[in-house]
Measured scan of single mutants.
Amino acid sequence: GLEHMADEEKLPPGWEKRMERSSGRVYYFNHITNASQWERPSG
């Protein structure tokens, strides 16, 4: 619901949600550090 939507907005600075086109899996990418990970970043 709306709570989940708001929660997605609160990623740490630099992080954004991305989708891997080949598999459709969602991952997280940090455009500041060029880091990427499957787990939702905390902090």
Rank of each mutant, 00 (worst) to 15 (best):
G1R: 12
G1Y: 10
G1Q: 13
L2S: 12
L2V: 11
L2Q: 13
L2D: 13
L2H: 12
E3I: 12
E3G: 12
E3H: 13
H4P: 11
M5D: 13
A6P: 14
A6G: 11
A6K: 12
A6D: 13
D7F: 10
D7K: 08
D7Y: 10
E8V: 09
E8G: 10
E8T: 10
E9G: 09
E9L: 07
E9Q: 08
E9W: 08
E9V: 07
K10Y: 11
K10S: 14
K10F: 10
L11M: 05
L11R: 01
P12H: 02
P12Q: 02
P12M: 03
P12F: 02
P13I: 08
P13R: 08
P13L: 09
P13W: 13
G14F: 09
G14R: 02
G14A: 05
G14N: 08
G14K: 01
G14D: 06
W15E: 00
W15F: 02
W15I: 00
E16M: 03
E16F: 03
E16D: 03
K17F: 04
K17V: 08
R18I: 07
R18Y: 08
R18K: 08
R18T: 04
R18M: 09
R18H: 09
M19H: 14
M19G: 03
M19T: 15
M19Y: 15
M19S: 10
E20Y: 09
E20W: 07
E20D: 15
R21E: 15
S22Y: 14
S23M: 03
S23G: 05
S23I: 02
G24N: 08
G24L: 05
R25G: 02
R25F: 04
R25D: 04
V26S: 06
V26Q: 05
Y27V: 02
Y27R: 00
Y27S: 01
Y27E: 02
Y28V: 00
F29N: 01
N30L: 02
N30G: 00
N30A: 01
H31A: 10
H31W: 13
H31P: 06
I32N: 08
I32R: 06
I32V: 10
T33Y: 06
T33A: 04
T33S: 06
N34A: 07
N34F: 09
N34W: 07
N34G: 14
N34S: 10
N34L: 13
N34C: 01
N34P: 02
N34V: 04
A35H: 14
A35P: 01
S36A: 10
S36L: 11
S36H: 07
S36M: 14
Q37A: 04
W38N: 05
W38H: 05
W38Y: 14
W38M: 06
E39W: 09
E39L: 07
R40W: 07
R40V: 07
R40G: 02
R40F: 11
R40M: 07
R40P: 08
P41G: 00
P41C: 02
S42Q: 13
G43I: 13
